[in-house]
């Protein structure tokens, strides 16, 4: 037997060792539980992880939302029933936040309802456009792919501070505008411009990630489909709408779901860039939850938990609609 074969045999024995150790245990379990129940044994590790890190926190959150005080441990918190929900829903007119007891919750909800669709639409359109450009045979393609992905690797705080430096009163952008003889604008002082830059900065920071996913999707589309279209003299727009988009649909759906979830979770960049201002123009739901639960003193964990549960329910409904749409798409 050659040295190579001996090494391979030894390596094989080492690799097989865990299986050999586990085998008798599995046999024992199978004999005890029966073969029908065996899949549960294999699912158990994942189930434990899901229960510990996903379901249990949800139940804890539910408990916090129906209990009061600024105490952290559940056993120190008295039950207050639906008081926290009542506080959030104490509103004369839901369309006018200033008539609500917790006006900032409703303002944050309203802002999120505008921010999420605008940001997700902008993000997907720009990421798709970028991916299409990067999929072509352009010079320095690899370099540009790296450049567009670079912001994704930056810490959100770094992103926000960099853009704050660019956008502030005496910032780089106003320096450029002044040197061109134009009047500088205090970008973060006006609600509309602050909102625009909030969307812009978050799109800039994250689009690289979605661009890469879409690029992978574009590259998976067979070339011969395009060649056939070219032979049929299809226009580029027709090729895009009849070939690229339909074949990219599953990837686009994944990107859409990821982008919506990320958009709803937006917090760090805006917290540093605008702090939710001017006034409350860029305050989103997660910032409201953070402010109530962690930045305030005493910390109102109950109200924060109630607000986050409501956000969770909204996301759940959205995901349900999403799944229904994607299922009906498949049925077609």
């Amino acid at each position: 037997m050659s040295a190579g074969t001996q090494f391979a045999a030894a390596a094989g024995a080492v690799v097989a060792l865990p299986a050999r150790l586990v085998e008798p245990v599995m046999y024992g379990l199978q004999r005890l539980l029966g073969i029908r129940r065996m899949p549960w044994v294999f699912l158990l590790p994942n189930l434990v992880a899901v229960i510990l890190f996903a379901l249990l926190p949800v139940f804890i959150n539910v408990f916090y939302s129906v209990s009061g005080s600024d105490r952290l441990f559940p056993w120190d918190r008295p039950l207050v029933g639906g008081a926290n929900y009542a506080t959030l829903f104490d509103c004369d007119n839901f369309l006018d936040p200033s008539t609500c007891s917790r006006d900032l919750f409703w303002r944050a909800l309203g802002n999120s309802l505008v921010f999420v669709p605008v940001q997700v639409t902008a993000m997907i359109l720009i990421a798709l456009l970028t991916a299409i450009c990067l999929n072509r045979d352009i010079r320095a393609r690899g370099f540009f792919r790296g450049i567009f992905f670079f912001p994704v690797m930056l810490s959100p705080v770094v992103v926000a501070l960099t853009w704050q430096w660019i956008l502030q009163r005496n910032g780089a952008l106003n320096g450029l505008i002044s040197s061109a003889g134009l009047t500088p604008v205090n970008w973060l002082v006006f609600p509309n411009t602050a909102f625009f830059w909030s969307v812009f900065v978050t799109v800039w920071a994250h689009m690289g990630f979605y661009t890469i996913i879409l690029l992978a999707g574009l590259q998976a589309i067979p070339r011969d489909v395009y060649e056939a279209a070219r032979m049929d003299s299809a226009t580029p727009w027709r090729v895009f709408t009849r070939i690229t988009l339909p074949l990219l649909k599953p990837v686009l759906l994944v990107v859409f779901i990821l982008a919506v979830i990320r958009s709803v979770q937006t917090f760090d960049e805006l917290y540093v860039l605008t702090g939710g201002g001017p006034g409350s123009a860029t305050m989103l739901m997660v910032q409201y939850i953070f402010e109530v639960g962690f930045a305030s003193q005493p910390r109102n964990f109950g109200l924060a938990a109630a607000a986050s549960l409501l956000l969770g329910v909204a996301l759940l409904i959205f995901t349900g609609i999403q799944m229904r749409i994607s299922r009906s798409g498949r049925d077609d």
């Binding site: 605008t274 201002g277 409350s280 402010e291 930045a295």
Partner: peptide, 9 residues
């Protein structure tokens, strides 16, 4: 407005 006006929360 940069300080009290532009920032929220």
């Amino acid at each position: 407005m940069d300080l009290w006006g532009a920032v929220g929360g």
